[in-house]
């Protein structure tokens, strides 16, 4: 028999999964724009704003469930994790917007030489992969998939530091290096949030508090 709490939990999951889809779309659009030199700042801004506006109803629904049904065990872990993930999705949107604004103000990778482009492209694609994985793991409450984010995050970190090393090595300051320095930092932060989501999923599915970073 369906429990009274179940319909609220289903509604919450549906809202969060929808937010995840929009977050993925926002990050994807922003990164692809930067990598390919296309530009859709209004669309990214709208999506980022949508993510911000989705957060409050999700938090309100979670609070209502806590107040009305006093959840425990897996229900409680899911609620805690969903509230954290909701924040992570907002951050996805915010960093995507930052990348878009960097593009608008400092342009993309047009001036970048091949070695920089290679690192940024690789990092962008890896980060996108992490965002997709975090959302897939969430939808299935799949701790095993969530744990794979740890290795992916290591790769993003390595790329990030290799970019910094390269920057120091070349001792050049161009539009490319300034804009891409900020972008790689945002990518690195998006990757961090993907691992936070992974940690939340491991916790909600198993009760284990695991660091994936």
């Amino acid at each position: 028999m369906k429990r009274l709490i179940d319909s609220g939990m289903e509604q919450l999951a549906s809202m969060l999964f929808r937010m995840g889809e929009i977050a993925q779309k926002t990050v994807s659009l922003s990164i692809v724009n930067y990598l390919e030199g296309t530009h859709t700042p209004t669309q990214v801004k709208q999506l980022s704003d949508t993510l911000s506006s989705m957060a409050e109803p999700i938090e309100d629904t979670a609070f209502e469930i806590i107040a009305r049904f006093q959840p425990v065990a897996s229900d409680l872990r899911i609620l805690k994790s969903y509230m954290k993930i909701c924040y992570d999705f907002r951050r996805y949107g915010r960093y995507a917007l930052d990348i878009s604004q960097i593009y608008e103000r400092l342009s993309g990778m047009d001036e970048c030489d091949t070695s920089f482009r290679k690192i940024i492209e690789e990092m962008g694609l890896e980060t996108l992969e992490m965002v997709g994985t975090s959302i897939q793991a969430l939808k299935n409450h799949d701790a095993a998939v969530a744990k794979t984010l740890s290795e992916m995050e290591n790769r993003v970190d390595k790329l990030y530091y290799s970019y910094l090393d390269k920057l120091i090595e070349t001792k050049t300051t161009t539009g490319c290096t300034i804009s891409s320095l900020l972008v790689v930092r945002y990518l690195e932060r998006i990757a961090d949030h993907a691992t936070y989501i992974g940690e939340s999923i491991v916790y909600l599915a198993t009760g284990e508090k695991m660091r994936l970073r």
Partner: peptide, 11 residues
Amino acid sequence: IFENPQHELTE
């Protein structure tokens, strides 16, 4: 027990 019960029946 209330956050992470180990036994399925408790959950």
